[in-house]
Structure formats: C-alpha cells, structure tokens
Design a protein around this nucleic acid. Sequence first.
DNA 1: AATGGGGCCTGAGAGC
DNA 2: TGCTCTCAGGCCCCAT
Length: 277
Amino acid sequence: MPELPEVETIRRQILPVTRQLTIVAGQVTRARAVRAHRSPEEFLALIIQRRILDIIRRGKVLLFLLDNDTSLLVRLGMSGRLGVAEACLPSLPHTHVQLTLSNGTELRFIDPRTFGQMAVVNGHDPDRMAELGHYGLEPLSEAFTSQALAQALAGKKQLIQAVLMDQTKIAGLGKIYADEACFLASVSPLRTAASLNTEDIARLHAAIRQVLEQSISARGTSTLDAAYRDANGNKGDFQAKLYVYQRAQQSCRVCGTLIEQRPLQGRRMHFCPRCQR
DNA sequence: AATGGGGCCTGAGAGC
DNA sequence: TGCTCTCAGGCCCCAT
C-alpha cells in the first residue's frame, strides 16, 4: 500500500523525468480514475498544454504543479502506480490514464483496485486547497515536533494506531508505518492516544521519523497483496526490515515472543506483546 | 464534534 | 484443475 515513503519514492523518481515538460495529449480509459470531474474530457482539457513545474508531496498525495497555478493531484489509493515510459512501449493492464509529454514519453497511471484517482485542483499550496487543507502534520517537516504530536494526540480516546492513521492529525501514515512506529517506540497499540505520557510521545515522534526515513532509503515496502512497485516497476526493500506488520505468529526480532494481531476498525494491528507496553 | 462502520474495487491465496 | 470465498485497506460518506 503506498504510504508516505512509497509516494515519496515515486515523487523522487518521476520528478527528474517530467520537470519542465508539457502535457501535450492524454487518454483516460477508465472514467472512475478521474471521478472528481464531470467527464474525462473535462479533466483532460484542464491539463493539456500545461507545463509541469515541480512535483510535491503532502501526506500520501502527489501534486504536479502546473504552469497556470493549478495542480494535478494524484492519490494512489491502495494499488495505484505511476510510471514514465516511452510511448511505443505497451501499457500494463489497468492503465487508466496516459498523458503524453512533450519529449514523447508517457506518464502512466495504473490502478487495479481503482481506489486511486487523478484530479485537477486550484493553486499550488496544499494547505490552501479544499482537498488537502484539512490534512494534519507533515511528519518529515520541521513543524512535526514532539510537542506538535502531543497536541495532535491530546485527549483522543481512540486507540493510538487509529489516531496515527487519521490523515487530519498526521498525514502520510497507514497500516504499515503505524504498526512499525508503535513497535519502535515500545508503545502498545492497545493504548488510547490520551494515555501516552510525554516520554511515550517523544519516543513515538522519533520512531515515526525514523521508520519513514529508513523506508524511503529502501524505496518503500512491497507487501504480499496489492504489490507496490516504484516508478521504475521495482519492488521496495523495506519489507525485509519490518518488525511487526504482517508478521503475526512470527517471532519478534528483538525478544522472540510471537507477534500478535488484533482487529482495529475492520483492519488488523500487529504488535509484540512483550516489547510494547 | 467525534467516532464507528459500510462501501467501493480487484487479485491473490486458501479451501473444497 | 477449477471454482468460490475471504481478505487486503485508503478514503469517502453516513449514522450515531
């Protein structure tokens, strides 16, 4: 599942091969991929002849900044992929959007489960966009301090993992990194956000930064299902370094205790009952 | 206001 | 072998 590290990996790979290029043509072969718009034609009309100035990321969302103060917003959802390929190369199954760039290559959006989408939005500043303005702390920014995290968690009666995955509190964490951050911080996911003390939060803050940065270095995590691939079609390497996510009934890499899983909002959380308190 | 749950989707893997 | 069922989960919407 593309979470912050996977999206950031794709951003870094796509940026150098699209920057300053103009979208000269486009094709939408599945209207759902651009469902925020009335029609694929409307979507395409908004981006054709627009030049890509830069690509930024907010949480799990990519924004291609266009030269008329609009942005092409890309959510990868669960199974979305982006790639840039020579136009002569065949497209992969589930390629829903293909945008021809001024150097003859194509930016391709592939998404089997169709939870992802592309949309054109106004402006370049995510904090001032209707679509992203409600997003919470950006974990790799300077604004993400231990104090800011404490404020985001204060008084919340939900389990800590649920709050960590709430994009309006912290933007970019999903199941994988919420599980892993709690492990690294030695915090049990059975606790409520409000129950964490200042030291717990300080460890959690450091853990979130650490796991995200290490995963970006490994070009993200490719899990068994919905297999994430980077923009070059390669798997990430971070799955080999996971401590708890999808490791139920396997031995904790630190203490050997069996990793447990429990339901959380229709999903599952994974944790070491001994290392995490 | 905050919280919980359902629905959208498809492919992989399990089970028969 | 081939079918059916279950599970995975980001995000949006609705009900409480």
